[in-house]
Design a protein around this nucleic acid. Structure first.
Length: 879
RNA sequence: GGGCGCAUAGCUCAGAGGUAGAGCACUACGUUGACAUCGUAGUGGUCGUAGGUUCGAUCCCUGCUGCGCCCACCA
């Protein structure tokens, strides 16, 4: 027997889903869910919990629907993050800065990976995520290394990958190039300094406004707008760069904006993207004044050499002021780019890097979404995808760090590049190139952007470059579930690389979920201290409750405001189900495998079968559309409202009849022995359907309760056809009768426990039959006895029936009349509205037939009620 | 500057061209055998704003306002 208390912890640990996750169905339709591989350094946060839960729901549902499902787990080596983290812990452990060699650091990181990489995997298992862990992959495992290397060579040989000297975003803290995507703009308080540049050949000067005075050492020109009348006469003349007194020209370039600053701008091609472009346009020299650590180099006066860029800034300003070259200073709000991992301002630097021609790869990637081969859910995210890909710039894939896939390029003594899958191959190529056998080759020091390997994940996890059977079977039959923030980083790159490499889209659906926020709608962050740990929630409320809550609060295109309250809600629902099963077992219900819904005859049973059939189909449609909120909604209301509140209450007398004494039976005897078995079977059947449909969302309790009902295998319900129209009518009538009587009792302040005698009158129903079938239940549910009425009565007007309640002297006839008159007024108003519409010719001509028919039916119903109330009102007048 | 999303009950959010919904909260009443992690009955909304299309708009279209986000630029 089940515990009285619902305690998820007591059974959650006893279920493992590894076997069913690894089960293959070679003859079924293939379907794959590709888990976005979490970072090895990661630990589970709410975002993971949501993302993974949704995928798990999909994977489990697809399994139930008979698909051959691969739910592929993995871990991402997360180059920069991991290296920073391990370095930090080593330094904190006493290692001297700069003392680490490539080999020792890599050894340490691998050690860290072996020991900590499992943390998040175990957390994923705790959440009940049914990945096939026997397929676990790591983005830096040997197979991945081979694949990445091959891809690099392939891109290179197709002319889509080049090594170029270009200006890139340099992160001085990490000491590496980073891509455009790894930058975050931050608004900071800053200054705009107005600096006087003296003309070389006169005492005149031109004022230049800048936010970066320290870069003036690298100035090679001053630019003004060609249409700026103030400065036109100066174009072509020369100015002295302050502090170094180097002559540079004044040039006309449209980049200079007369509205901004002083209208004149210093040009530093080596350290600013726009200035670099100006430099190219005007064939200006490039003067680099900074090293890769963000310190000024030997091209600046000695005083400033090796000085940090921000220290140098203060010093420069100080000196300019002293020399009276500083005209004025404005305080401004400025947005400047920061490295997203290092959180330091990035520095544009001209360096050699490897670039993928993303512009070329983007063409087919855009097409694949345009022509519907890949669908985003919700669809509007496609706009974002298009916007980015249509303006995509070369992707800088080289990183000057050590943790990652080493770039498979080797350099000859003269700098000649040999891109190959191995040193041996490179050596052969070099031999051919130089015409001799022994050539000393040096491998590129850099590693690849982490997203390079992630971008290949859909086919690498399927075995590529080996032509495995999985690769042919599951590639492009996938769904990806993820947050919008990695549409560029990951989704777009998977599509580009997949199309390039496999000539086919990697997946067909991309489900983009919302962000989890705190209850005030703020982003969760450690610094704000508003982080909710999903595992804490699981511990407190049970994993299933958390999963249920995540599913029920997610809706397309909307972020989730998370609070514990909503988890309580989920827990309460599961508790309800738990108690349903307790009730069933107390009454001897066990799943009967021979039971057929077609054989059900008792109307209440037919009704619940119908309700469940309807629910299953609604849940199925919702699942197909990934509307997890609707899935839970339908389940919730079918179980709680239909099954618990009505079905269970109605069948109690049948289960409990035997315990009643004769004088308590009030003559509502039914052929109980027969009925009891039918009802037991129906009840068990119903519970099993609930538990099955619940399985994708709350697998632990589903398994547990399914077992309790005697069903070991969970499968999706298949429900036969039944003709339930009459039963539905009857039950809906009973429901409205009971609700109305309850309402009336409350209205008249009759205590719920007080029994009331009633008389049911109807020309549409067989009153005696209803009383035999449901009298006992109605007695229990509302405290009414069917019998003779002698005293004053109050009528409860129903559809096609009236119930008269005996109330003795408690009724205030005057009050009753007022109440009924008010009801009447509303009904008349309602009827009038309907009739007005029905009298409108335009309405009749244009509205769909169904709508018109609906209106007419409604009028009939209203008229019936009006008639009854009218009748009752008149009878009250007689009294 | 370009783009996207959102605006419905006190709160969190569904929703559909034809009688406005749920959960929570709130009010009143109620624990004898499934469940107080509960039950019953209620209160509560001119669906942001101004126009347009339509027989009919809260839903479709346009403008506006407010909030959130993305991209680009910023000397």
């Amino acid at each position: 027997m089940l515990d009285k208390n619902f305690n998820p912890e007591s059974f959650e640990k006893s279920f493992s889903f590894e076997i069913e996750a690894s089960l293959r169905k070679p003859n079924a339709e293939p379907f794959m869910v590709l888990l976005p591989p979490p970072n090895v350094t990661g630990s589970l946060h709410m975002g993971h919990a949501l993302c993974y839960t949704l995928q798990d729901i999909i994977a489990r549902y697809k399994r139930l629907m008979g698909y051959d499902v691969v739910f592929q787990p993995g871990l991402d080596h997360a180059g920069i993050v991991t290296q920073l983290l391990v370095e930090k812990s080593l330094y904190e452990g006493g290692a001297e800065k700069g003392s680490l060699t490539r080999e020792t650091l890599l050894k340490e990181i691998w050690f860290f990976k072996e020991n900590s990489g499992n943390t998040i995997l175990n957390q994923i298992k705790t959440l009940g995520i049914s990945c096939d862990f026997s397929r676990l992959r790591f983005t830096m495992d040997e197979d991945s290394r081979k694949a990445v290397t091959k891809m690099f060579v392939k891109l290179f040989e197709n002319g889509l990958l080049h090594r170029r000297k270009k200006m890139i975003n340099w992160d001085p803290l990490i000491g590496s190039a980073i891509s455009d995507l790894e930058i975050v703009e931050k608004e900071v308080d800053s200054y705009l300094w107005y600096i006087k540049y003296r003309l070389a050949d006169s005492s005149e000067s031109i004022t230049v406004a800048t936010t970066r005075p320290e870069t003036l050492f690298g100035d090679v020109a001053v630019a003004v707008n060609p249409s700026d009348q103030r400065y036109l006469h100066l174009v072509g003349r020369e100015v002295m760069v302050p502090l170094v007194n180097r002559k540079v020209p004044i040039i006309a370039d449209s980049h200079a904006d007369p509205e901004k600053g002083s209208g004149a701008v210093k040009v530093t091609p080596a350290h600013d993207f726009n200035d670099y472009d100006i430099g190219v346009r005007h064939k200006l020299p490039i003067l680099e004044i900074m090293n890769l650590r963000g310190e000024l180099n030997e091209n600046v006066p000695e005083l400033f050499q090796k000085m940090d860029r921000f220290v140098a800034r203060r010093k420069v300003v100080e000196l300019l002021e002293k020399k009276e070259l500083l005209e004025k200073v404005e305080t401004i709000k400025q947005k400047i780019p920061f490295g997203d991992r290092s959180n330091v301002p990035i520095e544009p630097m001209i360096t050699y890097q490897w670039f993928v021609d993303a512009e070329k790869l983007a063409v087919s990637a855009v097409k694949a979404v345009e022509n519907g081969k890949i669908k985003f859910i919700p669809k509007h995210w496609e706009n974002l995808y298009f916007e980015w890909l249509n303006n995509v710039r070369p992707w800088c894939v080289s990183r000057q760090i050590w943790w990652g896939h080493r770039i498979p390029a080797w350099y000859g003594p003269d700098g000649q590049i040999f891109v190959a899958e191995s040193l041996e191959e490179a050596t052969v190529k070099a031999g051919q190139f130089y015409g001799k056998n022994v050539v000393e080759l040096v491998q590129d020091e850099d590693v690849l952007d982490t997203w390079f390997s992630s971008g290949m994940w859909p086919f690498v996890t399927l075995g590529w470059p080996r032509q495995t059977s999985d690769l042919g079977r599951f590639y492009s039959k996938m769904i990806i579930v993820t947050g919008f923030d990695i549409i560029f980083f990951w989704i777009a790159r998977m599509i580009m690389m997949g199309l390039f490499c496999m000539d086919e889209v990697p997946f067909c659906e991309v489900y983009i979920h919302g962000l989890i926020r705190d209850e005030k709608g703020q982003k969760m962050s450690k610094s704000k201290g508003n982080v909710i740990n999903p595992l804490d929630l699981c511990k407190k409320y049970g994993v299933d409750s958390v999963r249920w809550t995540l599913a029920s609060t997610t809706s397309p295109g909307r972020d989730i405001k998370m609070n514990e309250h909503s988890v309580e809600n989920g827990r309460n629902f599961l508790t309800k189900l738990w108690n349903v099963v307790r009730f069933a077992k107390m009454n001897g219900c066990l799943y009967n495998h021979d039971f057929k819904v077609e054989d059900v005859s008792y109307p209440m049973a037919k009704w619940i079968v119908y309700k469940i059939k309807q629910m299953v189909s609604q849940v199925g449609s919702a699942m197909a559309e990934y509307r997890f909120d609707e899935v839970t909604h339908h389940l919730y209301h079918c179980l709680w409202d239909s099954f618990c509140d009505w079905y269970m209450e109605f069948i109690k007398p049948i289960f409990q009849q035997s315990s009643l004494k004769n004088d308590e039976k009030r003559g509502y005897d039914l052929p109980h022995t027969l009925l009891k078995k039918d009802i037991r079977d129906t009840t068990s059947w119903a519970i099993v359907q609930f538990v099955r449909v619940l399985y994708p969302i709350a697998p632990f309790i589903s398994k547990k309760l399914s077992g309790e009902m005697g069903v070991m295998e969970i499968s999706w319900p298949i429900i036969g056809e039944i003709d339930a129209a009459e039963a539905i009518e009857e039950v809906e009538f009973l429901k409205s009768a009971i609700s109305s009587v309850r309402s009336m009792k409350q209205y008249l302040h009759i205590p719920p426990t007080e029994k009331v005698s009633v008389r049911l009158e109807s020309d549409s129903y067989d009153v005696a039959d209803l009383i035999v079938k449901y009298g006992e239940a109605m007695h229990r549910m509302v405290g009414i006895n069917f019998g003779k009425i002698t005293e004053q009565t109050v009528p409860v007007v129903l559809n096609r029936a009236v119930i008269y309640m005996e109330l003795g002297s408690k009724i205030d006839m005057g009050k009753e009349r007022v109440r009924l008159s008010q009801d009447m007024k509303k009904l008349l108003q309602n009827k009038e509205n309907m009739l007005f519409r029905l009298a409108n010719e335009d309405f009749l001509n244009n509205a769909p037939e169904e709508t018109i028919w609906d209106h007419q039916k409604r009028v009939e119903e209203i008229e019936d009620k009006i008639q009854k109330i009218d009748y009752v009102l008149r009878s009250l007048e007689v009294v």
